[in-house]
Simulated assay, not measured.
Amino acid sequence: MKFLVISLLALSFSSVSLATTKEDVQQKTTEAASAAADYTKEQKEQFQKDMENKLADLKKEISEMKAKASEKSGEAKKEMKAQIAVLEKKQDEMKKDLSKLKKSSGKAWSEMKSGMSKAWDSLSESYEKAKAEFKESK
């Protein structure tokens, strides 16, 4: 008998906790949407921060290249300056894209992230190529 009473009490409590109203569903949906938006905002902010750091590092490296180029002469100096100019142009484009990214949201943010990642890969590849050529011209 004691077991039956405990079982009935447990059942009554579980049925109360299983009862779902329209308001419960709406609240849980709102909470989930809010959590997803917060997560996306955090991802966006982290991506922006990472890009800003990468661009700052690249700016320093380009400055070092300029210093090395100034020590060269003739055709080597001319070629190095041309490559540096290309890198700086790509870097400026990345800065503009980053500015646009900061203003974007939703689907646009996702597309901007993809485009910026590809642009960074291209810029990084150009930098590595220029760096390798500078080493060869020593």
Rank of each mutant, 00 (worst) to 15 (best):
T40D: 03
E31N: 12
E93Q: 10
W120Y: 06
D38S: 11
S104Y: 11
E71R: 04
K103S: 08
D38T: 15
I84L: 01
F47H: 09
D24H: 09
S110Y: 05
N53F: 05
Y127S: 04
S114D: 12
M51P: 01
E31L: 15
K90M: 09
A33V: 10
S63V: 00
E75G: 03
S114K: 09
K102A: 15
V5A: 09
M1R: 10
S104F: 04
A37Y: 12
L87P: 00
T29W: 08
A32T: 12
A19I: 15
E128N: 10
M112P: 00
K2T: 13
F13Y: 11
M116A: 08
S73N: 14
D92L: 07
S117N: 11
K131H: 11
S126P: 03
K129I: 01
A10I: 14
A10K: 05
S99V: 08
A67C: 13
K77P: 02
E75I: 04
K113A: 06
A130Q: 00
D38L: 15
F47W: 06
K118R: 07
S114Y: 10
K81T: 05
K96C: 12
K41Y: 09
S114M: 09
A76S: 13
E23H: 14
T29A: 11
E42P: 02
L101D: 01
M51L: 09
A132R: 03
K41W: 08
L87H: 00
A67D: 11
K95N: 07
D38N: 13
E93A: 15
E71M: 11
K77Y: 01
